[in-house]
Amino acid sequence: MFGMADGDPTPGLWNWAIGNRIDAERVHGAIAGALERNVGPLGTDGAIMCDVYRVGGDFPTLADVYLAPAGVDEATAASAVAVRLETAVLLADDTLDPTRYVLAEPDGTLRPVHVDEIETDDGPERRGLRPCTGGDCDRTPERPAAA
């Protein structure tokens, strides 16, 4: 296993934090373009559903993607969405370290990072992005993604 989000134990549900304030329609469009499928808000029939909401922190737009297609690598999809939105997308990795995430950069590159998460009434805020260094990151090299 690569050590990034491609081993997600919850297929069909992706939770992403986006590095800028982005409108829900634009997020839906970027996901639709990346997956080549219809994407709409919760309650949309026959489509991938995506709930987009705002929080504070360095990644102020959260996107919960429901009914994500099986067989599509989450990190690769996030990479393609980051390119389309021209901003970073943060997603959980598959380690047990609660501060470690995968960062999909606007150029499509994927790399492991650490970030602090604070739970608020509005949802989780993520701050303090820093490179992944040390023993916990040795098994996960940076890699370019197919965006």
Rank of each mutant, 00 (worst) to 15 (best):
G43T: 01
C137L: 10
T95S: 15
Y53R: 12
G40M: 00
P124C: 14
V81H: 00
P9W: 06
E105F: 06
W14R: 08
V55D: 04
E36N: 14
Y101L: 03
A77L: 09
D121L: 13
A17D: 06
I18H: 02
M49R: 15
R139G: 15
G57T: 03
V65Y: 05
L35R: 05
A80G: 10
G56R: 08
D51M: 12
A80T: 00
I18C: 05
A68M: 12
A75Q: 07
T76E: 15
T140P: 04
G3W: 09
E36H: 13
T10M: 13
A24P: 05
E36S: 15
P60E: 10
G128P: 07
P98G: 06
V113Y: 07
L42E: 15
A24I: 02
D94Q: 06
D136R: 14
D138K: 13
D73S: 14
D6N: 15
E142I: 10
V72D: 04
A5D: 13
G7P: 03
G108R: 08
D73H: 05
F59I: 00
G7E: 12
P106Q: 07
R127L: 13
V89Y: 01
A82W: 01
A34G: 07
G71M: 00
D6R: 14
R139H: 13
G71E: 03
A32G: 11
A68F: 09
A30V: 06
E119L: 15
G57C: 09
E105H: 08
A70V: 06
D93V: 10
P106C: 10
G57I: 11
A34E: 08
A78R: 03
T76R: 13
A70K: 05
T61R: 00
E117Q: 12
G12I: 03
R37M: 12
Y66F: 14
N38H: 09
I31V: 13
L91K: 08
A78C: 10
G134P: 03
L129G: 03
P141H: 04
A24Q: 02
